[in-house]
């Protein structure tokens, strides 16, 4: 029987917080962060559909899967702006967090309306 292939790890650095974690090449940036109980990138659907895990990769190589155009335009994607739940590292990476959770539901009606005007 063949021994399982050794797992390949890369270092991921979240520039805002300085948080560094080891992410496997076969798991997404978001999954790697979550598995180690680390924080920094907001965690939503984990399926490329909700946009909350949006990041900009500032340095490093990665592979990616299809992600929602509602949250990442083709131009953005070309510029390294991606959803962390759809991206796996191919080298050490540095990323900036762009996505956030919007607490609309907990806002007062007037704040929610103001929010609606902005978006």
């Amino acid at each position: 029987m063949n021994a399982p292939a050794p797992k390949v790890f890369h270092q991921v650095t979240i520039v805002e917080t300085g948080e560094v974690y080891r992410c496997r090449e076969d798991e997404t940036l978001l999954a790697g962060m979550e598995r180690l109980g680390k924080r920094g990138i907001p965690v939503g659907c984990r399926g490329g559909g909700c946009g909350v895990c949006k990041v900009q990769v500032e340095a490093g190589e990665y592979s990616k899967r299809v992600m929602s155009r509602a949250y990442v335009s083709a131009e953005e994607e070309a510029a390294g702006i991606v959803l962390a739940c759809r991206v796996k590292p191919l080298s050490d990476l540095r990323l900036a967090v762009l996505g956030k959770m919007k607490k609309n539901v907990c806002a007062t009606p007037s704040a929610a309306a103001a929010d609606a005007r902005q978006s």
Partner: peptide
């Protein structure tokens, strides 16, 4: 208590 992901993540 309120759960931020449950309340705000939608598609």
């Amino acid at each position: 208590k309120l759960n931020e992901r449950f309340l705000t993540v939608v598609t």
